[in-house]
């Protein structure tokens, strides 16, 4: 368990380290105005749409991955699987 925690911390440090140069480069804050849709969130929204924000299915563990925690979408799947079929939509 301790080993798992250490590895998670190491991963977080790697990502934080990778992002530091970008943060330093950014200088003044705020992304408004000079180029079309900049600052409205449109230019980055495709990242979220491809990720769990607009595409929750990709966060689910595979069927060959038992004993998982699964995260919020696995929670949804388990919750709505427990409800009666008549309460679920079926397309």
């Amino acid at each position: 368990m301790r080993k798992h925690t250490l590895i998670k911390i190491a991963f977080a440090a790697i990502v934080a380290g990778a992002s530091l140069p970008a943060m330093a480069q950014s200088g003044s804050s705020g992304s408004s105005g000079t180029s079309g849709s900049a600052g409205l969130g449109i230019d980055f929204a495709g990242l979220s749409t491809a990720s769990g924000t607009g595409n929750p299915y990709i966060s689910l563990p595979g069927s060959s991955n038992p004993g998982r925690m699964g995260g919020p979408i696995e929670g949804l799947r388990e919750h709505f699987t427990k409800t009666k079929p008549s309460q679920r939509s079926s397309f």
Binding site: A45, T53, N55, I58, G71, P72
Partner: peptide
């Protein structure tokens, strides 16, 4: 989806 633009804490 759980959000429109905001990042969430789960993903690929």
């Amino acid at each position: 989806a759980p959000a429109l633009q905001a990042p969430v804490a789960f993903g690929a």
